[in-house]
């Protein structure tokens, strides 16, 4: 999986490309927790090019969301493909994680 990081007006954007599973989730966990440790409080995760997610990926998203909430920051998730969104729904994570359709909406919320 490829992780592209960008800064946009003080917002830290992660673009995920490929498959977020138990083999790749560790790399993403390291990257996002590094950003949180460096003081990023507004984070967008762009799922547009993410083809697959398993519970290992969901765990990292949940853990990062909890960590950012503790710092009184916010994470937005955007542009999920249908099958990926379905995994969030099966897990029940769509009921409490902020998922929006487009990057613009995500940036506006922060």
């Amino acid at each position: 999986m490829e992780i592209i990081e960008e800064k946009r007006d003080g917002i830290h954007v992660f673009k995920l490309n490929g498959r977020l599973d138990s083999n790749t989730s560790q790399g993403f966990e390291t990257a996002i927790f590094q950003a949180i440790a460096d003081g990023s409080k507004k984070i967008v995760i762009d799922f547009k090019d993410l083809d697959y997610i398993s519970s290992a990926g969901l765990r990292v998203i949940l853990k990062a969301t909890k960590a950012v909430n503790r710092e009184e920051g916010k994470i937005m998730l955007c542009a999920m493909q249908d099958y990926v969104k379905e995994v969030f729904e099966i897990a029940g994570f769509d009921s409490f994680l902020p998922i929006v359709t487009t990057m613009d909406e995500a940036l506006k919320e922060l």
Binding site: S55, L62, N69, G92, F93, S95, L97
Partner: peptide, 14 residues
């Protein structure tokens, strides 16, 4: 699985 971010436990999710 119907819980808030703060309460959600992740064991058994798979």
């Amino acid at each position: 699985v119907s819980c808030s971010v703060a309460q959600c436990k992740i064991g058994g999710l798979g």
